[in-house]
Amino acid sequence: MLVSRCKFPGVPTPLSVGTFVKHLAVPISTRLHCALVGAGGGAKSRAVRCPKFQALKNRQKEQIHLYVDALLEWNQRMNLTAVREADEVMERHIEDSLSIIPPIRDSYLSHCDASCGNIRVVDVGSGAGLPGLVLAIAQPDWQVTLVESMRKRCVFLEHAVNLAGVSNVEVVNGRAEDIGNDLCFREHFDVAVARAVAEMRVLAEYCLPLVRVGGLFAAAKGHNPDDEVKNAETAIQSMGASLLQVCPVESHGPYGQRTAIICLKGHQTPRKYPRHAGTPAKEPL
């Protein structure tokens, strides 16, 4: 597992996993969470109502289980998610993250004049790894970079990646505005994704500088984001992109209709960006 090879202003060197775990004072097990594998735990039966999860291969399902186990265990001492039960994590986070794959694939194949194999994806404000780590497990041919500004969350992400045995992921500790101005990452990715990070106009300024000309930016949003999209039109255009589609996302969980906002980048991002100071803190999911 790699942490960013580039240095960013004001970003100290990440802690090692061993150092952080020592101070965390919580046992890190490699066992599956009982709620995921036990007969009475509930998540296995609830997962039946998660068709996108069920469509994964057995190895991918195992990796998801290991990731959820780590998420719940570390969440006892870290603010990773407001969801505390395995079945809710499966429906609210895993299935929701998987649901953004079809609109990304369809839009990429239709508008980017390329196949979806071996594409480079960046998850901006990855937090607990949602949706980026889930995308990496479900699409092992994608190369996924998880960008997170908090060092302790990066330590968790590295632990989860190593525990689940995911080889197509890089964890980068840095702020989106710094990374977007760094030549190692600027306009480097085919697709940028973001979920539960900030409103659309702010996301456009953080994500689109990372996307190559001809690539996509996909934001996962809730029901009826029309006002948010309208307020973001100027920011999207100023970042060299245009709104491609706002499409409903099939959701089988109890959390209502989801929406994917897809933007297509048409020309190079201006050097003056962004207007906002500091990456907004990711809200507990």
Rank of each mutant, 00 (worst) to 15 (best):
A25N: 08
N181L: 14
H188L: 09
I64D: 00
T30F: 14
I119M: 09
K221R: 12
D69P: 05
N75Y: 09
R258A: 03
N75E: 10
G125S: 07
Q60Y: 13
V166N: 00
L56A: 07
D123S: 04
V83Y: 11
P103Q: 06
T279A: 07
E88R: 13
Q76N: 11
T269E: 07
Y206T: 01
G18K: 14
R84A: 15
N75S: 13
E158Q: 13
P254R: 08
T13R: 12
G222V: 09
Q54A: 09
K57S: 15
A232K: 02
A281N: 05
R92N: 05
V17S: 06
H188V: 06
V83N: 05
A39F: 12
Q257A: 12
V134C: 05
L163E: 12
A277Y: 15
P102C: 07
R120W: 11
K221W: 07
V211C: 06
V161E: 01
L80S: 02
K272L: 15
P14G: 02
G180F: 03
G10A: 09
W142C: 04
E158I: 03
L157C: 06
Q237F: 13
V26I: 12
F189G: 00
D226Y: 12
P209R: 05
F20T: 01
A128T: 00
L133R: 01
G132E: 03
P131S: 04
G117P: 03
G222R: 10
V11S: 02
S97F: 05
I104P: 00
G117V: 10
G278T: 07
A55I: 09
R195C: 04
